[in-house]
Design a protein around this nucleic acid. Structure first.
Length: 652
RNA sequence: GCUGUUGUAGCUCAGCGGUAGAGCACUCCCUUGGUAAGGGAGAGGUCCAGGGUUCGAUUCCCUGCAACAGCACCA
């Protein structure tokens, strides 16, 4: 006698176990037609699943967010069926729904090519049109293994064997095709619709392990209807226009070339942008009571052995030596990070607890031999500059320093246009330094600090640094990829290894705790994200060229030069466009170059000593006297941390 | 690093077993034009590198390098 509670609070009684289909039908033909699946006591289920006990039930229709996930998962099944029909001998593995779509991993001697997509998609549409019902069945482990062994699906067999004993093993069939799957699914393949598209093919290791065979992964995107699919495809196209690699070229910011794989050649405008950001960061750190230092690029391997980096990361370090006979055995490493060097500075002289917390900052140029496949534009490179700092403090200061750090990071991200970011808490990895008790303390301290700072994080198990747990501050690029930018790491290990000590209040020698922290992460990565975030159209204070002064006729050249000079004297970054081109053309060119302000000088302005200001890419403009124009732009170009009434400035 | 794709003018790309083409950019000339591309002429390429097949290779094959997509990695 199950009683079914519906989302509106209404109650329905049934004489015996009922399926979702029955319940929907009892409510009305509209719902019976629209319901794709249901949520029973908070868990998504097939409509055909019987409900025997009192439950609260919510039906999932195409309008619900859950529908997208169902559509995508079902589409993955259809993809697998299509592939096996078209390419006999292909083995199936797994095919989950993901953000915006789905993928399916296949094992086949020959990988798929995008050229195969048309045929596969056609077959998929055929399967959708057939509209075979998804049928669930529960089988014993032995039967499941036997079934997939018979079909030669060795990956499925492995999956089944590795399922925990408690797990019910369910199979889903659509027509003749059958797959191991937890479900749920919609009613039939017809519910998928036609708004899907295969997007790319790539390799992926079976179960993510490089020692396993490489599978061929087909990615696709799937939506409720064609309109959503089109919107998504348009969005992707738009996002590609914001790609920092493309904008870097278009705005002439930087380039990369073979002879310096993974290192950036900064062009004048890109370097200007870099320096504006660096200057801003330096002011922020000064205000935050950090002490800036500079440490060596080349450091003897002994120091890296002592810190533990040699053992764990030597394969990713650039090594250097010299031909000199006496020095031939000596190996230097280009520093892959700054912490051991900062400890060397800390270790000079005798430190007192009175000096703590001691915040040591460096814009540290680091080199890491990143795997070739990891390189990505300027976001993942082999030569980069961290906005690094190490806070040497006592254990009881961790929480206060974390609060302080999070406040600084939040203010900076907000100034740079990122009001939204995610935080991940990465705890102890399998391979690590330090004993479990130390890790317990470090993780506990960081978690407590988070709760005091009001930081909501998602847990990222096993992803901490080898010396301590870390917070990762994650930003998303134009294409939807996540990048770790800021980080805060609690480290009890490095001070021990590098023998850092201070004299405590009671006169004894103690080990400081080290907090490793970065806000941008690296200038290179952050600038890449920044470019994408603003699509190259930076706020005035950041723009590498803030104003272009453009003439309409040659008679206006002297006044244009005077205007440019006046703006420059007011600290603005100005370029002159005196070309023999029509003003229409100049407007277009500077819109393309993403110049924020165009100052237009014609004969009239030259005669009256005025300036026409036009904010690109807009069409509105205003006529101002030269002094008004200078004053206005100079005020607008003040960096946010230097605004007289900024609340941050007061707080700092 | 692994799987796949790609590499032709400064940029975006077309092309092809018989030593190269477009648009934009560049240079020069005409034009001085008032707010989203004025007109004309010219110059510019060891077709990523090295090997192989071939009478002949930018084109086909192999190797390397780099980039791109994904996976793995990320102190």
């Amino acid at each position: 006698m199950p009683a079914i509670t519906l989302p509106d609070g209404s109650l329905r009684q049934f004489p015996g176990a009922v399926t979702g289909t029955d319940v929907a039908a009892s409510i009305g033909p509209g719902l019976a037609k629209a319901a794709l699946a249901m949520e029973v006591n908070g868990r998504l289920k097939d409509l055909s699943e019987p409900i025997a006990e009192d439950s609260s039930v919510r039906f999932i229709t195409r309008r619900d967010p859950e529908a997208l996930e169902l559509i995508r998962h079902d589409t993955a099944h259809v993809l697998a069926e299509a592939v096996q029909e078209l390419f006999p001998g292909t083995q199936v593995t797994i095919g989950p729904s993901i953000e915006n779509g789905f993928y399916y991993d296949f094992y086949r001697n020959e990988p798929f090519a995008t050229a195969d997509f048309a045929a596969i998609e056609a077959k998929m549409r055929e399967i959708v049109a057939r509209g075979a019902a998804f049928k669930r069945s529960v089988v014993s482990r032995a039967d499941a293994v036997a079934l997939f062994e018979k079909k030669g699906e060795r990956f499925k067999v492995e999956l089944i064997r590795d399922l925990p004993e408690s797990e019910t093993i369910s199979l889903y069939s659509q027509g003749d095709w059958i797959d191991l799957c937890r479900g749920p699914h919609m009613r039939s393949t017809a519910d998928i619709g036609n708004a899907f598209k295969l997007t790319k093919v790539a390799g992926a290791y079976w179960r993510g392990k490089p020692e396993n065979p490489m599978l061929s992964r087909i990615y696709g995107t799937a939506w409720r209807d064609q309109k959503e699919l089109d919107a998504h495809l348009t969005m992707i196209e738009e996002a590609e226009k914001r790609d920092h690699r493309r904008i870097g070229k278009e705005m002439n910011l930087f380039h990369l070339q073979e002879e310096a794989t993974g290192s950036v050649f900064w062009h004048p405008k890109g370097w200007k942008l870099y320096r504006v950001l660096e200057d801003y960061m330096r002011r922020r750190l000064d205000a935050g009571e950090y002490q800036e230092v500079k440490t060596p690029q080349l450091v003897d391997r002994r120091l890296w052995e002592q810190s533990g980096h040699w053992e764990k990361f030597r394969h990713a370090m650039f090594l250097a030596n010299v031909e000199d006979k006496d020095e031939a055995d000596r190996v230097y490493a280009l520093k892959p990070m700054n912490c051991p060097c900062h400890v060397q500075i800390f270790n000079q002289g005798l430190r007192s607890y009175r000096e703590l917390p001691l915040r040591m900052a460096e814009f540290g140029a680091c080199h890491r031999f990143e795997p070739s496949g990891a390189l990505h534009g300027i976001m993942r490179v082999r030569a980069f500059t961290q906005d690094d700092a190490h806070i040497f403090c006592e254990e009881h200061q961790i929480a206060a320093e974390t609060v302080r750090f999070v406040a600084l990071l939040t203010a900076i991200y907000s100034d740079l246009g990122f009001s939204d970011f995610r935080v991940k808490f990465s705890d102890r990895p399998e391979v690590r330094a330090g004993d479990d008790a130390t890790w317990d303390r470090a993780e506990g301290a960081l978690k407590e600090a988070c709760s005091i700072a009001g930081v909501d994080f998602e847990l990222n198990p096993g992803e901490g640094a080898f010396y301590g747990p870390k917070l990762e501050f994650v930003l998303r690029d134009a294409i939807g990829r996540d990048w770790q930018c800021g980080t805060l790491q609690v480290d009890f290990v490095m001070p021990e290894r590098l023998d850092a000590l201070y004299v405590a209040e009671d006169g004894t020698r103690k080990r400081p705790v080290m907090l490793h922290r970065a806000i941008l992460g690296s200038f290179e990565r952050f600038l890449g994200i920044l470019i994408e975030q603003h699509a190259g159209r930076f706020p005035l204070w950041l723009a590498p060229v803030q104003v272009v002064v453009a003439t309409i006729v040659d008679d206006a050249i002297p006044h244009a030069k005077a205007v440019a000079e006046a703006l420059r004297r007011a600290g603005l970054r100005v370029e002159l466009d005196l070309r023999n081109e029509k003003i229409n053309r100049k407007v277009v060119d500077h819109i393309e170059m993403r110049i924020p302000v165009l100052a237009i000088i014609g004969r009239r302005e030259a005669e009256l000593g005025q300036v026409v200001l036009r904010r690109l890419p807009g069409r509105e403009q205003e006529v101002l006297s030269l002094s008004d124009a200078v004053e206005r732009l100079a005020n607008e170009a003040v960096p946010p941390d230097m605004l007289p009434l900024s609340s941050d400035a007061v707080a700092a």
